[in-house]
Write a protein that binds this DNA or RNA. Structure first.
Lengths: 254, 254
DNA sequence: TCTTGACTCTCCCCTTAGGTGATACCCTAT
DNA sequence: ATAGGGTATCACCTAAGGGGAGAGTCAAGA
């Protein structure tokens, strides 16, 4: 039975001395003996155990769980492995979602950089814009339009873009989440964010008229730039889902 | 421009007050003003920034990186996102490997049907078992018990049962053969077989302590399941005969 | 025998992103 | 004036070690 010093064992197993110190202190791997000078000495049995520890550590098991696995004979390893596998798969699924979000953000970012120097409404022909504005004024009154425009103008370009992008992202997310239903936790988080953004856009005074005005501006913009933008405007189904989820959100907040 | 207290902002954004305190201290999100009493007050700008922070946090960016992303105008967000995506994909790949390893381990476990402690002590009341185990540990030391259990566990259920059955048969045979004497040829054949099985059970390292531990386990098992099992445990006379025949066997082997 | 360099010991602080609790201060409504 | 709730700061805790300080130990060469 060979004896290994901390350094030898560490080199052998590919860990640091600090790790062995830690495992010793927490009782995960005790040296077989201590010399007079309190030097740690490990035998083959400890080497074997260390390798088992590292196996489970590789699998992302917490050290405390590893201790249980190795020391508790009543421990159900099979179930632990199954559970761990499920957890890993969930983690992987989450990563998939994150990568998707990043890709969407990157796409938006590329779009964004194209529009960077431009106004949000720059792509809209002035005449159409003016025509719709007149129509809107006659429909909802000078006052409401003026207020909405003032609110919009109070944002810097960057802020406006940021809000537009976020709304865009949220809409995209929500579309994907439609199958989850309005009460889904993630959906509700998105709705909360969306509420906040709308709150900002309307200067704290939400009204259906304002929203409709903004929506129509958006449609006009999209119709004009159908080929160069991929801002998402909700279709009937998406809009219905958003309304439903928002109702649920407001009801749950009371 | 509204003002939000810590609690209001926290509720709005779905974080805790502590998080806002932390972000303030680390400079990630400073309140727009502090009241006379050092109360933090946030404006809409801060709310917006917080939402951006949370967006990147969702993507698993470290807070320090988020600070750079938001504060350094020369920062290449696109590249950061690409890099992050690559890192996430690597993480995902690693998880794939881990899941594969777990599945392989599970397959091995099931196929080999490794004898877990649970199975090992199957049919034995847990409390009694645990009590005896403790007693045995204090009597012979943790190490010996651990080694014995490890050896036992290295057998599959089927192997274990097969060995138990063979030992049982041998014991029965030997009982019948007592009148023939220890030197009888058939007796010696049984003894040889028995030695081999014991050798297996003890992992090649036979010791009287190990044997005693196993024997006591057996007795405990039998006492508990007296009505449902017909495993034979040698009584005094049988044990004496087995010892005698084994001595003869060992002597003749020299 | 002495010294030198490698090795080891223990103790302590640091890391992430906050959780939890203690203690004290502030604000407002009754 | 007091009670209740909001807030501030401080300090300790998490997992798995990293890094370093200060001191002791060991083996080999001069």
């Amino acid at each position: 039975m060979d004896n290994y010093s901390v350094k030898k064992l560490a080199r052998l197993a590919g860990v640091t001395v600090r790790t062995l110190h830690l495992y010793d202190k927490m009782g995960l791997l005790k040296p077989s003996i201590r010399t007079e000078a309190r030097y740690r000495l490990y035998g083959n049995k400890e080497l074997l155990r260390l390798q088992q520890i590292l196996f489970y550590r590789e699998l992302d098991f917490p050290l405390k769980d590893i201790m249980t696995i190795l020391d508790d004979p009543a421990f159900d390893l099979e179930q632990a492995l199954e559970g761990h596998k499920v957890a890993l798969l969930a983690k992987k699924e989450r990563i998939n979602t994150l990568v998707g979000t990043i890709e969407k953000t990157l796409a938006t970012l590329k779009q964004h950089s194209m529009l960077q120097a431009e106004d949000l409404y720059e792509g809209m022909p002035n005449e159409k814009m003016a025509a719709y504005r007149k129509e809107a004024i006659s429909k909802w009154g000078q006052e409401l339009i003026a207020e909405t425009e003032a609110t919009i103008k109070s944002f810097s370009k960057e802020e406006m873009h940021s809000i537009a992008n976020e709304l865009n992202d949220i809409c995209a997310q929500l579309t994907v989440l439609i199958p989850k239903g309005a009460a889904d936790k993630t959906v509700q988080q998105h709705i909360a964010k969306r509420m906040q953004l709308v709150h900002q856009l309307t200067g704290g005074k939400v009204s259906s008229e304002k929203m409709e005005y903004l929506r129509n501006l958006g449609q006009l913009y999209k119709a004009t730039n159908a080929d160069t933008t991929d801002y998402i405007l909700p279709d009937a189904e998406q809009a219905a889902f958003i309304r439903e989820a928002t109702s649920y959100y407001l009801a749950s907040k009371k």
